[in-house]
Amino acid sequence: MTFEQLKPQIDAITSNKTHVDERLLEICKLLEKHVDHYNWVGFYFRNGNKEELKLGPYVGAPTDHTIIPFGKGICGQVAVSNQNFVVPDVNAQDNYIACSITVKAEIVIPIFVNGANIGQIDIDSNTPDPFTKEDERFLEFVTQKVSEILS
Rank of each mutant, 00 (worst) to 15 (best):
L150V: 09
A61K: 14
K50W: 04
N114I: 03
N84H: 13
A92S: 14
N91F: 07
D135C: 09
G71K: 02
A98Q: 14
P62S: 12
G115W: 15
D94Q: 08
N95L: 10
Y44W: 05
E51M: 03
N91L: 00
P130W: 12
A116T: 15
I67T: 14
L150E: 08
I68T: 07
E52F: 01
D36M: 01
C28A: 13
D122T: 10
I10K: 01
N117C: 14
F3R: 02
I101P: 09
K72L: 07
K54F: 04
V80A: 03
G76C: 06
L53Q: 04
R137T: 08
D124N: 07
V103H: 15
S81M: 11
I68W: 02
P62W: 08
Q83A: 07
L25Y: 15
L139G: 06
Q9K: 08
K7Y: 06
F141I: 00
G71D: 06
H65A: 13
V90T: 11
F138H: 09
L6M: 11
L25K: 10
D64G: 09
K145V: 05
A61V: 07
V80I: 14
G73W: 05
D36S: 00
N39P: 04
T143A: 04
F3T: 01
A79V: 00
K145S: 13
A61I: 04
E4M: 02
F112H: 12
Q93G: 02
I111R: 01
I68Q: 01
F70Y: 14
R137C: 03
H65M: 04
Q93F: 06
L53F: 15
E22T: 09
V146M: 03
F43A: 03
A105M: 09
K133Q: 14
K72V: 12
A79Q: 05
F43K: 03
V142Y: 13
V78G: 01
S125P: 05
Q77L: 09
V80Y: 06
I67L: 11
E4Q: 11
V103W: 05
Q5L: 14
C75G: 07
A98R: 14
T66G: 03
L25H: 13
E26V: 02
